[in-house]
């Protein structure tokens, strides 16, 4: 007689079973840091719109151990977002040239190249160098 047995998936802990699922969850959590940092910048924008005093106060508030730790963690996560995002671009947008598909490495490499240039431009505009 048929009597199939269904194994339940642990709803809260399923991703702990394999490294690839943990990496996936880490990738999804990068969004928290992107969102929080965007809100931080919007707060800065609000201060900027109120004038020089408010803006300088905002910059001073950032100079705290809390923000240093938060921003270091955030930096690691957002870099992970960039790497994870660029590494799957050949899957999301394969490019067919003639008959063949462009090797994934070229598409990924091009994105890393643009990332490097964009980073240098932003840092330059901010006056880092």
């Amino acid at each position: 007689m048929r009597n199939p047995y269904t194994r339940e998936i642990p709803k809260y802990t399923w991703y702990l079973r394999q490294g690839r699922y943990v990496r996936y969850m880490a990738r999804e959590v990068t969004s928290l840091f992107i969102g929080l940092h965007a809100f931080l910048l919007i707060c800065g924008l609000g201060a900027l719109s109120q004038g020089e005093v408010a803006y300088n106060e905002f910059l001073a508030v950032l100079e705290s151990p809390f923000y240093v730790v938060f921003l270091i963690v955030a930096l690691l996560f957002v870099i992970y977002h960039s790497i994870a995002w660029f590494n799957v671009t050949p899957q999301a947008m394969p490019v067919q040239v003639g008959e063949d598909f462009l090797p994934g490495g070229i598409i990924i490499g091009a994105h890393y190249g643009i990332w490097a240039v964009a980073t240098i431009v932003v840092l330059f505009l901010a006056g880092v160098f």
Binding site: R20, Y21, Y24, V88, Q91, A92, M93, P94
Partner: peptide
């Protein structure tokens, strides 16, 4: 689909299902 990508990693025929699902979302 949330693009975990595990399907493509285990596929013995290198079909890359994750790729086709992203293209379908677009």
């Amino acid at each position: 689909c949330s693009f975990v990508g595990a399907c493509s990693e285990v596929c013995p025929g290198h079909v890359d299902p994750a790729s086709s699902l992203q293209q379908m979302k677009i």
